[in-house]
Computed example of a mutant assay.
Amino acid sequence: MPYPENEDLPPGVRHALPDHAQDIYRAAFNAAWQSGRYGQDEAVLHRIAWAAVKRRYRKLGESWVPRS
């Protein structure tokens, strides 16, 4: 099911990612869900969302930072 707000994201996502990365994650997840292309396989939708985040952010130690 889509996430209307960042506060609705899974706790692991909310605590790991900065606000802007959460926006990216939520938008990618919701777009993939709404496309209907992946059914309602949440594991696939979460992988798509993480891939979108990883295009703009990278993990440095324990933190996610914007790519240069």
Score class of each variant (00 low, 15 high):
residue 10 P to N: 12
residue 38 Y to A: 01
residue 28 A to N: 11
residue 36 G to A: 13
residue 3 Y to K: 06
residue 64 W to M: 09
residue 68 S to A: 13
residue 24 I to C: 05
residue 11 P to C: 08
residue 29 F to D: 04
residue 62 E to H: 06
residue 21 A to C: 04
residue 56 R to T: 08
residue 8 D to I: 06
residue 65 V to D: 06
residue 65 V to N: 07
residue 36 G to H: 11
residue 66 P to I: 14
residue 8 D to A: 09
residue 39 G to D: 04
residue 16 A to P: 01
residue 16 A to C: 10
residue 1 M to Q: 07
residue 60 L to W: 00
residue 46 H to F: 04
residue 3 Y to G: 08
residue 6 N to V: 02
residue 61 G to R: 04
residue 44 V to P: 02
residue 37 R to D: 05
residue 32 A to C: 08
residue 46 H to W: 03
residue 52 A to W: 04
residue 29 F to S: 03
residue 9 L to W: 11
residue 26 R to L: 14
residue 5 E to W: 03
residue 5 E to N: 14
residue 61 G to N: 14
residue 12 G to K: 13
residue 1 M to R: 11
residue 48 I to L: 14
residue 46 H to G: 08
residue 27 A to G: 09
residue 48 I to A: 09
residue 52 A to S: 15
residue 59 K to H: 06
residue 56 R to P: 00
residue 29 F to M: 02
residue 7 E to H: 01
residue 29 F to C: 01
residue 5 E to S: 00
residue 37 R to F: 01
residue 53 V to K: 07
residue 61 G to C: 13
residue 6 N to L: 01
residue 64 W to T: 05
residue 52 A to L: 14
residue 41 D to P: 03
residue 19 D to K: 07
residue 11 P to H: 03
residue 68 S to W: 12
residue 57 Y to S: 08
residue 25 Y to E: 04
residue 19 D to R: 05
residue 4 P to L: 13
residue 31 A to F: 03
residue 24 I to Y: 07
residue 44 V to H: 10
residue 63 S to R: 11
residue 23 D to C: 13
residue 58 R to K: 14
residue 60 L to V: 14
residue 59 K to M: 09
residue 37 R to T: 03
residue 20 H to M: 01
residue 55 R to Y: 05
residue 10 P to E: 11
residue 45 L to R: 15
residue 46 H to E: 08
residue 48 I to R: 06
residue 54 K to R: 15
residue 41 D to G: 05
residue 30 N to Y: 12
residue 10 P to Q: 14
residue 49 A to D: 00
residue 37 R to I: 06
residue 25 Y to N: 01
residue 19 D to W: 04
residue 28 A to H: 02
residue 63 S to I: 08
residue 43 A to G: 11
residue 56 R to Y: 08
residue 3 Y to Q: 12
residue 34 Q to Y: 07
residue 36 G to I: 08
residue 42 E to S: 11
residue 58 R to H: 13
residue 56 R to S: 10
residue 34 Q to C: 00
residue 61 G to A: 13
residue 59 K to Q: 10
residue 52 A to D: 14
residue 67 R to L: 14
residue 6 N to I: 01
residue 65 V to F: 06
residue 68 S to P: 15
residue 36 G to S: 13
residue 17 L to C: 06
residue 15 H to C: 11
residue 40 Q to A: 11
residue 14 R to S: 06
residue 13 V to F: 01
residue 68 S to D: 13
residue 44 V to N: 04
residue 5 E to A: 02
residue 32 A to Y: 00
residue 35 S to T: 12
residue 44 V to D: 03
residue 54 K to P: 06
residue 21 A to H: 01
residue 30 N to A: 10
residue 7 E to W: 05
residue 19 D to Q: 09
residue 2 P to E: 12
residue 42 E to I: 03
residue 26 R to S: 14
residue 64 W to A: 10
residue 18 P to I: 00
residue 36 G to R: 06
residue 24 I to G: 06
residue 46 H to L: 02
residue 62 E to Y: 13
residue 58 R to T: 11
residue 64 W to P: 09
residue 3 Y to D: 07
